[in-house]
Amino acid sequence: MAENLIKPENLVYEKTKVLTDRVMHYCPGCGHGTAHRMLAEAIDELGLQGETIGVAPVGCSVLAYYYFDVDMTEAAHGRAPAVATGIKRVFPEKTVFTYQGDGDLAAIGTAETIHACNRGENILIVFINNGIYGMTGGQMAPTTLPGMKSSTSPRGRDVATMGNPLKITELIAQLPGTYFVTRQSVHTPGNARKTKRALKKALEYQKLNKGTCFVEIVANCPSGWKMTPVQSNKWMEENMFPFYPLGDIKVPE
């Protein structure tokens, strides 16, 4: 019989206390859970739990405030960057983040996103891009790929009639108000760890008051894409990453 390793001194990984114990409502294999945990771990490791105020969006992560054990406000659809602006302006010393999906951030909230970034609000915007409206049942999103099927593009996105997918992160990086803009994923251990490093950097940069930090996480939507979680991660690598390449887009000089 092997030695029992399960004792406190051998502990190398457990759920961070910045996540609550609630069972998340996300579908099996959804990237939201891992993205939540990377952000929560970043907050935990920097000791920011007691001074962080988060803003949840409308979308699948509308209930994010049940999972992050930090003070949070639930915004109207697309308005999280404006809500976060209000919070940060009255509490400039606090750490403020928004957590938004692609429909929220890049369609209905485009104006709020761009102007918060252009003003250089000292907030962190976490942008989950899975190319689909998950919560409402898999409709076409601003980031849906050309030819990609959804319940409102059942024959595939036809860019001639439905418009083009919006690479909002590249657009955001052009704005003088942004300080750090990066695109990551959480579907492999290596990618998830890189995402956490990016989030930690972004939270540290917030203390410098140099502008908006914007972390896109390209994520899967197994239910919306109608695949198993493992298939969806493979599909994401093969289809999403060529269009939304991972890596830093704007780094501080």
Binding site: A2, E3, L5, I6, K7, E9, N10, L11, V12, Y13, E14, K15, L19, V23, M24, Y26, P28, G29, C30, G31, H32, G33, T34, R37, V186, H187, T188, P189, A192, R193
Partner: peptide, 25 residues
């Protein structure tokens, strides 16, 4: 099986944070 090395890769990608990892010192 007993091949676990405590690398924590499983726990890092688990969307539901269900895995706790131990490793010999």
């Amino acid at each position: 099986n007993s091949g676990c090395t405590g690398c924590a890769n499983c726990a890092v990608v688990c969307p539901d944070a269900v895995i706790t990892v131990y490793r010999e010192k």
